[in-house]
């Protein structure tokens, strides 16, 4: 008698029973599949990406000034795990004219997209909201070196991303959020009594700091 896991079935019944059962399952699944196809016709019908999707990095454009956000501070280059970027900075002529607050501005920027592993560390470490992970991902070329993109191309991709998603600089977003929270707390405090979750969480954070120091 074949023992299957914790099931014991007479030998002669087992194959017949199972073949019929297997057929039923497959048939049921097929019928179910016919009703609602799951296949995506990818190259013909483009698949939309999620808002957080990390495509190739691109540089952003400050419409207010107008100039790139990037000052060429090299922090992304130092933090890149694959050393796929290079950049140089120059004195900002717009600052001398008084139209910009940026003392230095990006002069030359190149990303070798073949080396890029799309980790998003550059975006995380950037202090000037200058780099974003765009939604661009279909960028294959026929040359081995064909994926080296320079400043104008990066700004163009960044611009496309900014327009498509209505990008707001993360520092501005964080400030808005903090202001809103402060306003909410200021409004709540006179009413008093309710201890918010944020207040409860604070001692744990303080503890962490003490431990890590």
């Amino acid at each position: 008698m074949p023992s299957v896991g914790r099931l014991i079935v007479p030998e002669e019944v087992w194959p017949v029973l199972n073949s019929v059962k297997g057929l039923m399952i497959t048939l049921a699944s097929t019928v179910k599949g016919l009703r609602k196809p799951i296949t995506q016709q990818y190259p013909t019908v483009p698949t939309p990406v999620k808002p957080r999707f990390m495509g190739f990095p691109a540089l952003t454009w400050d419409d207010k000034v107008p100039e790139p956000f990037c000052t060429g501070c090299m922090v992304c280059i130092r933090n890149c795990p694959t050393q796929c970027m290079s950049a140089t900075m120059k004195d900002n002529p717009a600052q001398a004219e008084g139209t910009s607050s940026r003392r230095k501005i990006i002069d030359f920027f190149e990303i070798n997209l073949n080396r890029c592993i799309l980790c998003g560390i550059c975006v995380e470490v950037c202090n000037f909201d200058a780099i974003v992970m765009s939604h661009e991902h279909e960028m294959s070329t026929y040359q081995r070196n064909g994926d080296r993109v320079d400043l104008p191309a990066l700004l163009q991709v960044g611009r496309k991303y900014q327009e498509k998603t209505g990008w707001i600089p993360p520092t501005v977003l964080a400030k808005q959020k903090k202001d809103a929270e402060d306003a909410a707390q200021a409004g709540q405090e006179p009413a008093g009594a309710v201890v918010t979750e944020a207040v409860v969480a604070e001692p744990a954070v303080a503890e962490d700091k003490a431990e890590s120091d």
């Binding site: 990406v49 999620k50 957080r52 999707f53 990390m54 592993i117 980790c119 998003g120 992970m133």
Partner: peptide, 20 residues
């Protein structure tokens, strides 16, 4: 996963001491 971390496979979402 893509909606959460931005990538389907190479997420790079966990951080030392928390999350991204």
């Amino acid at each position: 996963f893509e909606a959460v971390s931005g990538a389907r496979m190479m997420h790079n979402y966990f951080r030392i001491g928390g999350l991204k």
